[in-house]
Each structure stands twice: as C-alpha cells, then as structure tokens.
C-alpha cells in the first residue's frame, strides 16, 4: 500500500498544446489516495484539456504525470484505464445507439474477472432508473440519467481514481445536488479517489477536501475546499458574490 504522504496522482510542470496554441503552461498538482479534490476555473481555463491529458487522449508536450509512483506521461489510454484511472467526460459521451446495459458492460471492457455481473448490480443499486431501462438505447435517457450512466460506466472499470469533467453541466439544480451527493458517497463506499473539474465552484468546493483554482492553463490558488469557498478572490471570480 501507499504511504500516506505519497500522492496517488501527481502532475508536474505539465504542458499541452492544440497545434501551436499552448493550453496548459506548466501545471502542477497532486491528489492523495481517498481524497476528493476539486479543480475550479472559468471557461477555457484548461480544465478539460488537463483531464484529457490525464486520460491519455490529449497529447502532452512536456512535464510528467505519475500514478501510484509510476510514470504514465506517455502511456496509452487503455493502459491508464487498466492502471485504475477512469473518466466521466464532459458532456457524458455515452454510446447512444447501444443499450444501457451494453454501455455499462463496456465500462468493464478491460476486466477479465468474474465479478463484473456483481458490479453491474451495484451500479444498478446506485442508479435504479438505469436498471428499469437496461435494454433500451442509452440515447433515450434524459440528461441527468445520462450523467448517472456515465458515472456508472466509469465505476464499472473499478477505478482507483475517478476523473469527473463538469458532472453538473446541463443539469437541473435538484439533480446537481443529487449527483454531488453520490460523488461524495463514492469515496466512502468504493474507496475511490476523486478528482473533479467544475465551473460550478460552489457545489464542487463544498464536497472537496482540497481545491485548486486554474486560470489560463496554470494553477492560480490552492487550499482546503472550505477555505477557498470563503476566499474573497474566489468568491468574486467564481461564486458571483
């Protein structure tokens, strides 16, 4: 097991670019095992770019990403999933023509163990609405249900680290609370470490142990979630108060 000091995920001086336009300018952060860490920031600050780089679907031009002490900066996306990193991407990105059950089953694509059926039932237990409609195409689900499916699909890989990109986007306020409640509970029920990226800074920082504020591809501030919530600069820039 890891010692308490060694972070599960550490990112050092990460740079990433779209063509000649650099989106991340030497970004550094770390996420400890069983932590909930939130990254908040405005549109275009580089939040999604960072998460895509962490999953290996966005090219990295410099710096280093390590997971459980191993360098994964150049690892393929499937190698990272196998290592225990799963992502709930921005805009859900579910497989709309496939059934709900197939979506979940594909979340466990790299697993060969016998407990997949068990985990499927656990996800259905977490989100009963998915079980009711398991044989239907996933495209027929509402936005909130699709978000649940995307979270369930990511859980099916039995991740150690769950990356969530804007889980509240496009959801009704009552659903936002529900989704964040589930995320906060996952750490306790599944021992999952959570790294969450949000424009909804209030909701994200409320459940986070620690938070980072990202501005134009760099970390501008960091600290415990409740401290950032009461910080005047954060309140002004991201909470609108």
């Amino acid at each position: 097991m890891l010692s308490t000091e060694a972070p599960l995920l550490s990112v050092a001086d990460l740079t990433s670019a779209y063509g000649r336009i650099e989106a991340l300018h030497g970004l550094s952060l770390h996420v400890g095992a069983r932590e909930i860490v939130a990254l908040v920031g405005g549109n275009g600050a580089g939040k999604t770019t960072l998460l895509r780089a962490l999953s290996g679907v966005q090219p990295v031009t410099g710096g280093r990403v390590s997971f459980e002490g191993a360098d994964i900066t150049r690892a393929s996306p499937h190698a990272r999933v196998r290592a225990g990193i799963a992502q709930v991407p921005e805009g859900r990105q579910i497989f709309t023509p496939l059934t709900i059950e197939d979506n979940l089953r594909l979340g466990a694509y790299l697993r060969k163990d016998k407990e997949i059926a068990e985990d499927l039932e656990r996800v259905y237990g977490l989100f009963p609405v998915l079980k009711e409609r398991r044989r239907n195409p996933a495209g027929g689900l509402s936005g909130g249900q699709q978000q649940m499916l995307a979270i369930g699909r990511a859980l099916m890989s039995r991740p150690k680290l769950l990356l969530l990109d804007e889980p509240s986007m496009g959801l009704a306020p009552v659903l936002v609370d529900q989704v964040f409640e589930i995320i906060a509970r996952l750490r306790d029920t599944d021992d999952v470490t959570i790294f969450l990226v949000e424009q909804n800074a209030f909701a994200a920082l409320s459940i986070a142990d620690r938070g980072y504020v990202i501005e134009t591809g760099e970390i501008a501030m960091s600290g415990p979630g409740n401290e950032l919530l009461t910080d005047d600069r954060v309140r002004e820039a991201y909470l609108g108060v």
Binding site: V81, A86, P89, L106, L110
Partner: peptide, 19 residues
C-alpha cells in the same frame, strides 16, 4: 460491441479502455 462503441463515440471508447 467495442467496434460499435468506437463507431458511436471514439473519445468515449478510448476512455473506457478500448484500443
């Protein structure tokens, strides 16, 4: 199904570990 998933959404397919 992995082939269908790749056809439906390439990014999501890579994120669930499909090569």
């Amino acid at each position: 199904k992995a082939v269908l998933a790749t056809a439906a959404n390439r990014l999501a397919a890579r994120l669930v570990g499909i090569n």
